[in-house]
Nucleic acid binder design. Structure first.
Length: 475
RNA sequence: GGUCCGUUGGUGAAGUGGCUGAACACACAUGCCUUUCACGCAUGCAUUCACGAGUUCGAAUCUCGUACGGAUCACCA
C-alpha cells in the first residue's frame, strides 16, 4: 500500500479562521496517524486575491500549532512546485490532453452571452447551466478563432445522463444526477486553471490519497471524479467535514467575533489548547477524556468519528480548556502571554520585574486566557472601585468594623513586609476581634480588593504594599 | 427554484434495535469553606432524542413523509 498523503490547500489570504485550521488539523492527523505525509499547497489561481506574506503567515500559524509540514513552498519535496501559479504549464498540458480525448472543449462564449443566459435562467427560476453552445464547434473554426486572438476557456464535457455515485468516509454514499453537472470551466481565459481543475490535477500529481475538505465540495466531487476517470487515475478517499458555526449559529466570518486563530493567539490563548479544542469540535474520541496532546491525538484519531452536523464554536469551552493549559505553564511562558497585555493596559513603570512576576503567578490559576489578566488585576492599579451589592450587604453585617479596625492596627505594626507576617496579622486579628472563617477573611478581602473572590489573601496584600493596604483599610 | 446534506439539553457530544427510565464535558443554578480562597467539592438541569406515521415483542437508533437549518448551482476557492 502506498503512503498516506494529505494536503492543506488554502488560498493565500493572510487570514486563517478556526474552521480552516480545524480542517488542517484533521488533515494532519489523518496523515500522521498512518505515518504519512502532510503537504501544504498554495491555491493562488485567483490573481485578484493575492496577498503578500501570506505563505509565511500560514507556515507560522501551523508551526505554532505544532503541525509539521512535510512538503510545501518553503520546504520543497519531489512533487513541487507547491504554489499553483508556478504550475501553469502543467494544467495547460492536461487540459489540452482532455480536449484531445474528447472530454473537454474550447469555449469562446463572452461574459455578455453568459450573463444573458444567467438572467434568463433566473427569470425562469431554474438553475443556470452552461448550454454547451461551443461544444459543436468544428476544428477549423476553433483554429481560426484562436488565430484571430479570440479569448477562450476550456470546459469539461459532462455526461448528460446517468447518476454519479461516490462514497464519503463521513457522509457515506452521495448520489448526484449527471444532468445537473455543469460543463465547468477548467482553464480560464487568462490561462490559469480554476480551483476545480487545478485541485484534481495537483492532488493526483502530488500523490494525495485522502482529500479532506469542507462539505461545500460534496456536490462538486462527482465532477472531480469524472476527471480522475478521464485520465484513468485512482480516486482519493474523500472526507468531507461539516462547518464550524459562530455563536449565532451562522457561518464563521471575520465579522462575527474572534473567528481567527491569530485573534485568539493575540489574546493569550495557547495554540495547544486551541488545537485541542478544535479537534473536539465535530469529532470525538471513544473515551470520555478531552485533554489531549498532539501525539495522543495522532494515536487515537479516527476520521470515521467526525460528525456530520455543523458545530458551534463555543468560546466558553475553549476558555475552560485553555485555563487547563495555562495552569501547566512555566512562569516564563505565563509572563509571555500576560505581560504584554498588562503593559498595554496599565502603567508599569514603577513596578519591578519581581513584582510583576509575583502578580502574574498568583493569578495563574485564575485566568483562562492571557488577556484576562488585565480585568482580573485591576484592583492593583485602581484605588477606587464600586462594590457590588453582595459585597455591600456583607459589609453591613455587625462586627465587621471592629474586625477591620483590629486588622488595621495589626498591619500598622508590621515592620518587615512579608507574607508570613501578614498571615500572622490575620491570625492575631482572628483572636483579638474574635472573628473567624468567612467573617474574618471576607471583610479584609473586600476592603482591600473590592471583591469577594481572588487569590490567597496574604499574597494579595503583600503585593498591594503596606501603604496601599492601609489606605484602603482606613477609607 | 432544483439538488445534496443535516436535526440528541444553552453549547460540544456519547449513542448503529433491548444493558439509555439518554453517558461525559462546558455553561448555568443551588448548597458546602471556624486558615479565607469557588483553581475545589456536592447536588440539580432532555418524563426524552425536530415533528408525524410505519416496521418490530421492543426505536434516539430502521423506513417514509413533513418542518426547520445549511450547502451548492461563478472565468471564487
Amino acid at each position: 500500500m502506498s503512503k498516506i498523503r494529505t494536503r492543506f490547500a488554502p488560498s493565500p489570504t493572510g487570514y486563517m479562521h478556526v474552521g480552516n485550521l480545524r480542517t488542517a488539523i484533521f488533515e494532519y492527523l489523518v496523515a500522521k496517524h498512518n505515518d504519512g505525509d502532510f503537504i501544504l499547497r498554495i491555491e493562488d489561481t485567483d490573481q485578484t486575491r493575492k496577498i503578500e506574506g501570506a505563505i509565511d503567515f500560514i507556515y507560522n500559524t501551523l508551526k505554532l500549532c505544532n503541525i509539521n509540514i512535510d512538503e510545501g513552498p518553503n520546504n520543497s519535496g519531489e512533487y513541487g512546485p507547491y504554489i499553483q501559479s508556478e504550475r501553469l504549464p502543467i494544467y495547460q498540458k492536461y487540459a489540452e490532453e482532455l480536449v484531445k480525448m474528447g472530454k473537454a472543449y474550447y469555449c469562446f462564449c463572452t461574459e455578455d452571452r453568459l450573463e444573458k443566459l444567467r438572467k434568463e435562467a433566473e427569470e425562469n427560476k431554474v438553475a443556470f447551466l452552461y448550454d454547451g453552445h461551443c461544444k459543436k464547434l468544428s476544428q477549423e473554426e476553433i483554429d481560426e478563432r484562436i488565430k484571430n486572438g479570440e479569448k477562450y476557456v476550456i470546459r469539461q464535457l459532462m455526461p448528460k445522463e446517468g447518476v454519479s455515485v461516490y462514497n464519503d468516509l463521513v457522509y457515506g454514499e452521495i448520489k448526484v444526477e449527471n444532468k445537473l453537472l455543469e460543463d465547468q470551466i477548467l482553464l480560464k481565459s487568462d490561462g490559469y486553471p480554476t480551483y476545480n481543475f487545478a485541485n484534481v490535477i495537483d492532488d493526483h500529481l502530488m500523490g494525495i490519497t485522502h482529500v479532506i475538505r469542507g462539505n461545500e465540495y460534496i456536490m462538486a466531487t462527482p465532477k472531480y471524479n469524472l476527471l480522475y476517470d478521464a485520465f484513468g487515475w485512482e480516486k482519493p478517499t474523500y472526507i468531507h467535514v461539516s462547518m464550524v458555526l459562530g455563536e449565532d449559529g451562522q457561518k464563521l466570518s471575520k465579522r462575527n467575533g474572534d473567528a481567527s486563530f491569530m485573534d485568539l493567539y493575540n489574546d493569550g490563548y495557547i495554540p495547544e489548547a486551541i488545537v485541542n479544542y478544535l479537534v473536539m469540535l465535530g469529532w470525538s474520541p471513544e473515551t470520555n477524556e478531552e485533554i489531549f496532546t498532539m501525539d495522543e491525538l495522532i494515536k487515537i484519531f479516527d476520521p470515521k468519528r467526525i460528525s456530520k452536523s455543523p458545530s458551534v464554536f463555543d468560546i466558553k469551552k475553549l476558555n475552560w480548556i485553555n485555563a487547563h493549559y495555562i495552569k501547566k505553564l512555566s512562569i516564563d511562558e505565563l509572563l509571555k502571554i500576560t505581560v504584554p497585555h498588562l503593559k498595554n493596559a496599565y502603567d508599569l513603570k514603577d513596578k519591578t520585574d519581581e513584582w510583576i512576576k509575583e502578580l502574574v503567578s498568583i493569578y495563574q490559576n485564575h485566568i483562562s486566557y492571557g488577556k484576562e489578566i488585565v480585568e482580573v488585576t485591576d484592583l492593583f492599579f485602581k484605588n477606587e472601585k464600586e462594590l457590588d451589592q453582595e459585597c455591600k450587604d456583607f459589609m453591613n453585617q455587625e462586627g465587621i468594623d471592629n474586625t477591620i479596625k483590629v486588622f488595621t492596627s495589626e498591619i500598622e505594626k508590621i515592620e518587615d513586609w512579608t507574607k508570613e507576617n501578614i498571615n500572622s496579622a490575620i491570625m492575631n486579628t482572628k483572636e483579638k476581634a474574635n472573628a473567624k472563617g468567612k467573617m474574618l477573611y471576607m471583610p479584609i478581602r473586600i476592603k482591600v480588593s473590592y471583591q469577594m473572590h481572588g487569590p490567597e489573601l496574604p499574597d494579595t496584600i503583600h503585593l498591594l504594599g503596606k501603604e496601599t493596604v492601609l489606605n484602603r483599610l482606613q477609607k
